[in-house]
Design a binder for these strands. Structure first.
Lengths: 189, 189
DNA sequence: CACTGTGAATTCCTTCACAGCG
DNA sequence: CGCTGTGAAGGAATTCACAGTG
């Protein structure tokens, strides 16, 4: 969240930002921001604020986003296609380096710079040094695809299907279920 | 999260579940689950566990998901189309009751049971009693669309564009930035 | 007997207040 | 003088331990 904020400030050519200004943007309070940034080892200038460029760099380093991270997209349906075209990954240094599907009519099709490949050949991600996967397949297929990914020594999975995945503990999984997020809203209305 | 778990158990025809079994599924620990469910006012049976059907109903009621919640989808691009076809909303009782876009070539097109309507006519959501919106427009357009929605007395927004939105405090906004979520993974690798 | 429900203890996170520096 | 950095205080969430019940 901080990285995105600092990246956006950098794009807007703002050189420094104070904790109170940042707090307003992020809907947090100033002490929280100072605490967090101090944990990151960020160096603000007293009387001025935080230097945008170097703080962004600092956070990038902590998150290991200072090198381009290759990711494989599994599932080239509507959601997969939307993700392949999503411009936001660039800011965080991601590169969608491969796209897989099991639908023969899609294999060979080109999306952006990638050609859709047969999911049966998913083990090539190991050769290509890809350690991240974005999962955009139907819920029923999710676990079996994950099992394949586990065999390919994947290290992290962004799961967009609404189901819990069984993986070895060494693998980090983040699940986003749009319906579940939407389900929070009526409570507040 | 609990509602989804209990809904899935119900679909699988499981009648009861213990806190320890649920803990394993959700990757939590048993006391946490008992605390949470007790806050919900759930009634487990000692020696047995929690009744799946009635607990699901209970949580539905708390989240106001016991009545069908109509939602408007704004933006019928790739992401919007994927969301319109997403099967997961049903489990939470959502109904995509309108779809809007500003692209003339899309207006009039049919997606599922909805016809894409001109965003200039977005005020009809007020007449149709829609209080929720899903925002799937490019980041540059997000704030201006949100301003329109605010005028339509919207109460909750699920924002899928990577930007912060300015809204009156009475409106609840949940933002999901896929790139940001993905950005968490390399840290753990 | 197995499992829930819950006060108490613990741990974690947030907020505060202010010293310290550019 | 303004804003950061941080120990201390306060508050919130988690975990524990066990009493209580079908």
């Amino acid at each position: 969240m901080y990285l995105r904020a600092f990246s956006m400030l950098k794009n807007a050519n703002q050189d420094t930002i104070s904790s109170s200004e940042l707090a307003e943007r992020l809907h947090l309070n100033p002490p929280q921001i100072r605490k967090d940034l101090s944990y990151f080892g960020a160096f603000g200038t007293r009387g001025v604020g935080y230097p945008v460029a170097s703080t962004a760099k600092q956070i990038r380093g902590i998150l290991k986003l200072d090198v381009t991270q290759k990711a494989a997209l599994v599932g080239a349906g509507r959601l997969g296609a939307a993700i392949a075209a999503y411009p936001g990954f660039e800011m965080f240094g991601f590169d969608i380096a491969a796209i897989f599907d099991n639908d023969e009519s899609k294999i060979g099709t080109i999306i952006g710079k990638n050609t859709i490949e047969d999911i049966a050949k998913i083990s090539i991600i190991e050769d290509r040094d890809i350690h991240l996967a974005i999962l955009a397949v139907p819920g029923e297929a999710a676990q079996s695809v994950v099992d394949m990914l586990v065999n390919c020594r994947i290290k992290g999975i962004l799961n967009l299907s609404p189901c819990y995945l069984e993986v070895p503990k060494r693998i980090k999984v983040i699940t986003i279920d749009l319906a579940m997020e939407l389900g929070i809203l009526p409570y507040y209305m």
